[in-house]
């Protein structure tokens, strides 16, 4: 009961934040609002007991992406430009895609359903044996870091490469721009 109320309130604020992000044309405000968006979604993860996801959301959503977006603003403009053509077609595409996705979820088992396929196959083994086999108290951690260790290693490598790439692009652009400025001065 309480958790439902909390979820409703959090989702309401999440929707409000998303609409505000869409409507705002000052990009600094958009950066602030997207930080708040990620804080709100992390709170939702916490109420769902998904501690690891909340950790990641905190580090990536509120921390790194804010900094990256600020770096991007430094290289581009601070105000959003007015759209050059009408947004009717993209709206239709979005609505249709969303409708298809929602239609797809109708077949899926309910949230927390004990008879869902995901909960019947390996999940009971993990839950039952992980303390003996891995000796880490948090089951999610032992699944991520041990049962699916290679998976996680690959993911981490991808994220790391992406981060390095973005940083290289941003710093390279800034340096080149500074050189250009100096050329103009002399």
């Amino acid at each position: 009961m309480i958790e439902t109320l909390i979820n409703i309130a959090l989702f309401a604020m999440l929707v409000f934040t998303a609409l505000a992000i869409v409507r705002m044309d000052r990009l600094f405000a958009v950066v602030m609002l997207s930080g708040v968006f990620s804080l709100l979604s992390a709170m939702l993860f916490v109420t769902l007991d998904a501690v690891d996801v909340a950790f990641t959301e905190a580090a990536v959503g509120a921390g790194i992406s804010t900094v990256l977006m600020l770096g991007t603003i430094a290289l581009t403009a601070r105000r959003e430009k007015a759209p050059s053509h009408s947004s009717a077609v993209p709206l239709v595409v979005c609505v249709v895609t969303g409708a298809v996705l929602v239609y797809g979820t109708l077949d899926m088992p309910n949230f927390g359903d004990a008879k869902a396929p995901a909960n019947l196959h390996v999940a009971p083994d993990y839950l039952h044996d992980s303390i003996e086999e891995i000796d880490v108290p948090n089951v999610v951690t032992s699944i991520l870091a041990s049962y699916r260790g290679y998976d996680t290693l690959g993911e981490t490598a991808v994220v790391f490469t992406a981060g390095i790439g973005v940083l290289l692009i941003l710093s390279g652009l800034r340096r080149r721009r500074r050189y250009l400025d100096e050329d103009e001065d002399t």
Partner: peptide
């Protein structure tokens, strides 16, 4: 969950100062 709360306190401060 207090670890996350601590992490958020850190990130919040660093983020504000960065902005």
């Amino acid at each position: 969950f207090l670890d996350i709360a601590l992490l958020y306190a850190l990130i919040n401060f660093v983020g504000t100062i960065a902005v």
